[in-house]
Design a protein around this nucleic acid. Structure first.
Lengths: 149, 149
DNA sequence: ATGAGTGCAAAGTATTTGCACGTAC
DNA sequence: GTACGTGCAAATACTTTGCACTCAT
């Protein structure tokens, strides 16, 4: 699934306008960089990668602030919370999915299951609960790791 | 569902023996206290509660260390990871369940859904992934909070 | 021109760890 | 008696924040 980056950035600009926030180079850079990163990431990783990729310096603070902003905008999500690490994902143009996480090698496998989604909605209706987002993490051991006992 | 505390503590003692660990007063106290606490908890909360409940002092370090141990033993689980908070639950004698978390008031609603569990197992088989545990958190707004708009 | 954004260093949180002492075995 | 457990304070890791300066509007 290919994302139209320009369209995305336009939406982001409109989003910023609506909130009376400024369209800054750092914010646009980060959305570009995230779109091209194409993997799950942690903040530290992103800070370093951004430093290596661009001449422009983007401080750790700005990365944290922009990550929060992009989460509200809906472009990225916290997908895994393991120990004290938080792993994010750029979700634009991807259908909703959940994750299998290998506790041995750290591999992350994405899966889509409509039935699970539907059942969740059903549960929410039952409790008159309005869902905003959810996170399903299945921790276990992947096939490769099981082989090399 | 009533837990047989003595049986649980015996199992825990055997578990410790097997791992060549010592059966200490702090460890037994904590399992007692957790069993009687009966709510979701955070570490800080537990530390304070333990201090108010017993004459015996149990240090924050020991609480952290014992929580980790009891997780391995299987008596408690990290059920919610939100922002930088970790919420635990004493799970002995409770069937597996997942959680709805109100982002407005913090209320936690537990639900059991066998179908979701089965579908998860199916997904794992499909990816030849051996699940050890999982966590499904649905964040949203509860009915009370929606009423008082 | 004005106020929001940024970078930096400092402050917060949550959790872990080194070490001297205590206790289970 | 020996080794593991505990308490304390310090260290670590992650994230947020105050402030002076910069930049978008």
């Amino acid at each position: 699934m290919k994302v139209n980056l320009n369209q995305l950035k336009d939406e982001f600009k409109r989003y910023l306008k609506r909130r009376n926030m400024k369209i800054t180079q750092s914010r646009l850079d980060l959305i570009d960089l995230l779109a091209s990163y194409g993997r799950h990431f942690e903040v530290e990783e992103l800070v370093n990668w951004v430093a290596s990729r661009t001449d422009r310096r983007v401080s750790r603070s700005t990365v944290y602030r922009t990550i929060k902003l992009l989460q509200e905008f809906g472009a990225i999500k916290e997908v895994i919370k393991q120990n004290n690490r938080t792993i994010y994902e750029f979700v634009v143009g991807k259908p909703h999915h959940d994750h299998l996480v290998c506790v041995e090698c750290g591999k992350i496998i994405e899966f889509v299951n409509e039935d699970i989604e539907n059942l969740q909605d059903e549960v929410c209706r039952e409790y008159d609960f309005e869902p905003m987002n959810h996170r399903l993490e299945i921790f276990g051991i992947c096939s490769e790791c099981r082989k090399q006992t």
